[in-house]
Amino acid sequence: MTSTVSASGLSLHYGGTRALDEVSLRLTPGVTGLIGPNGAGKTTLLRVLATAVPPQRGEFTVLGHDPGSLRGRQEVRRRLGYLPQTPGFHPDFTAFEFVDYVAILKELNQRSARHGEVRRVLDEVGLGEVRGRKIKKLSGGMRQRVALAAALVGDPGFLVLDEPTVGLDPEQRMRFRELIAQAGEGRTVLLSTHQTEDVAMLCHRVLVMAGGRIHFDGTPAELAAQAAGRVWSSAERAPHAKAGWRTGTGTFRNVGDPPPGAELLEPTLEDGYLLTLDGYGMAVTA
């Protein structure tokens, strides 16, 4: 499959912190999940690929354009949709006005065509009925959908979503997942998230990042398989487990190297994620 995004050796340091360390990747159409602990470098990677921050080393192309040149950067941005981690709004704008503002930033200057596009994307995220309502009067979930609508303006070929489900209640999160799945049809979506459920439900591929590097690149099933034979149940917390917690049934679910004769459990995506991150100071205990 042709790559939409191709990156090689991306590096970026802030002072002594390695935000990105020799990151190479290829993204293809569909939803790719990007997971990792806080400070892993996820947001920095998204900002670099979205052309907001240039890398200090390495190169990449998006949809065949090199963002290293001014012209290439403009071409990438014309085909880019970006939903930042904390999307900001002008609170006095209505949903329509805000998306219209973003459409203008995307160079849709012809008024009637632009308004048609604004209405299309607001309808697409289910906000057609409240398009005239001020953003400050919308719920958190609705605001997040307004931001997604803004990212979808102009039918972008590459959509970058930075933790879009944070702060949403379960119902809103499910609704948002439907929208992301819909957005992933026919375009490349890079979804940064802390929710392994998001990855399990939406992604055909997942990248695990920590310390500015990518430590896993494969399918969600392959990530879960990293923990095959290393998840077991016990009556007490296993002292040598990498992670262990009491489940709702009262037994402990342990992740790590099992003792002989342990009752093995089917690994989940989260188990595979925890074991992949082993060595990065992330252990879960309860």
Binding site: A50, T51, A52, Q74, R77, R78, L80, Y82, P84, P87, G88, F89, H90, Y101, V102, I104, L105, K106, E107, A150
Partner: peptide, 18 residues
């Protein structure tokens, strides 16, 4: 002070023009 700064930076409108 510009809440949409991040969205504006990655838009095709050149930052200097804005």
């Amino acid at each position: 002070l510009d809440p949409t700064y991040e969205m504006a930076v990655v838009s095709p409108v050149h930052g200097f023009r804005l």
